[in-house]
Design a protein around this nucleic acid. Structure first.
Length: 217
DNA sequence: CCCTATCACCCAGTTACATCA
DNA sequence: AATGATGTAACTGGGTGATAG
């Protein structure tokens, strides 16, 4: 009945970004255990818990029959360190690993599970923030590139107007195919190599470049 | 084989408590 | 001392895959 989906480890979204490593190597956590919701009263720290900064254990017997207030455990530095270390090796734990780690930390397996779950969420959030930051920069770069190109277009138009009969076809060597929309475009810069560069990226669309193959579709 | 129920696990979102400025 | 902001442990609800009957 044991399913070891746990070993999918990390499903990370990585975007290659020049000068911006969004590698998932942030110390983040990774396993969790969900389903055991039905299991327990987490607030009971396992006995033996003489952890230095750990909240002292205390029985949660409801006062006046009402629900006991939720107690919040603060992990000790050592517990956090061990959990982090373990997370670096494995973002998810199989039941055995969970059991061992819990014993080592004087915590309940469920607590270890929750910690990994939250840790995964945190690292995912961090990753998302980094990607967001990256996309912002990229957007700014695209805007700048667009501005330059618009300017270039203006200049070309001005030149064209200046010609005797206004008919100046671009040199054939300047014509390239836009890999995205499959239309013929004009290379407006000096490096024709830039024309092919766009095919070589894992970006969803054209990357900002110093040089450009322009397609305004 | 299908179907259904159960279990164990995960994730996203939320809540609530501890700590700090 | 009171308080709002922040971090995070714990909870909730829903989804998925494996397994058994």
């Amino acid at each position: 009945m044991e399913n070891f989906r746990n070993n999918y480890s990390c499903l990370q979204l990585t975007i290659a970004m020049p000068g911006f490593s969004s590698s998932p190597s942030l110390p983040s956590s990774g396993e969790s255990g969900g389903g055991a919701m039905k299991e327990l009263d987490i607030n009971q720290v396992p006995s033996s818990g003489t952890e230095e900064e750990c909240m002292e254990e205390e029985d949660e017997s409801p006062i006046n029959g009402g629900p006991a207030p939720r107690k919040k455990l603060r992990l000790t530095k050592e517990q956090s360190r061990l959990l982090e270390e373990s997370f670096r090796h494995n973002q998810t734990l199989n039941p055995k690993q969970k059991e061992i780690l819990a014993e080592q930390l004087h915590l309940k397996p469920r607590q270890v599970e929750v910690w990994f779950q939250n840790r995964r969420a945190r690292s995912k959030l961090k990753q998302t923030e980094m990607e967001c930051e990256y996309l912002k920069r990229w957007f700014a770069s695209l805007k700048e590139q667009n501005r330059k190109l618009q300017k270039e277009v203006e200049e070309l138009r001005a030149m064209k107007v200046g010609q005797p009969n206004g008919q100046v076809p671009p040199p054939a060597s300047n014509l390239t195919m836009c890999p995205r929309c499959q239309r013929v475009t004009t290379t407006t810069t000096t490096t024709a190599a830039a024309a092919t560069a766009t095919t070589n990226t894992n970006m969803p669309f054209h990357q900002p470049r110093q040089t450009s193959t322009v397609c305004y579709n």
